[in-house]
Write a protein that binds this DNA or RNA. Sequence first.
DNA 1: AGCCGAAGACTTCCCCACCG
DNA 2: CGGTGGGGAAGTCTTCGGCT
Length: 306
Amino acid sequence: MRGHEKEQRAGELEASLLEFHKQVMPLHGVVQAENMLAFVAQLIDSLHRVEYVHAIRKRPIGAGRTDPRNPLFDPIRAAVVMSKDQPEEAFWLVFLATHCGRNLRTEWQLVRELYGASEAAPWTWARVLADPQAYADWIEDHHDEFQGKFGNHRKYESLKPGVHGTSAVMMSYAAWIKDFGSHVQMVAQAQDQAQGDPRLAFALLYNQMRDVLRFGRTGRFDYLTMLGKVGLAAIDADSTYMNEATGPKRGARLLFDGQIDSKSNARMLEGRVSALERHLGVGMQVMEDAMCNWQKSPNRYLSFRG
DNA sequence: AGCCGAAGACTTCCCCACCG
DNA sequence: CGGTGGGGAAGTCTTCGGCT
């Protein structure tokens, strides 16, 4: 995006926030000019992260992106490529990418390794589904050989054998999908129940996915929003689910009340976030991401240009 | 009303690679 | 060879929903 477009977008968001502040409900946290500047910058960064997947869907994707033996391997681009002809494999890659996360230093290396970079043939979904125990055993046997690291969101995950380790997570995911029959049927049953409402379908899946080990709020939110962005499921986050997290809740308290130790509870805050999201029209994932990042330094506008 | 379990873009601690 | 910082494992504390 060109500079003046970014500034125009910032101006529009600021105007929309001010209108909401005056006409709907006060936003005590962005009354100060530097706070407003910082929050708008976070909204724009979050919009870019969401739009990034839409951007790569429109561009040609090289063959190396789908090959785990290639350093260019990228599970999200691979999922985009496969979403049409091999949807089951695409879902599996989104799951692997979410479980591992993208590490700042090693990038997608851990996903490559778990997908079978060093093997004669990759651990495809068909292979994992046919014998999840064989995949779990292989992970445990090789757990100390993997060089890739977990991403920031997944920094409490472990490759070591045990009830909380990656091998156990993979077993529980395979069992969860097997229950529906397939990934495609997993999405279809939710959309049937929701009668095609993308936000209701998201809420249903968010609850059903509790069965997947180690997939708490962050894991489920990241996995399901990515399915939507890649185009594998017509679902859309209906809530920030801040009752299960501290970052977005702190951000919402700061934004609406101007202080992190306000008495507003998660339900009240969630209602206000919902109203503000409808006003701005940016989507719940952007609201969640922006509030969470903003509360870390609410009065510091960190320009990436300088 | 109050207990209990679950979960966390937590918090703390320890280890190790890296650096001067 | 001691300081430093990142990463992994384990430990706290708070919140909240479910349950009685």
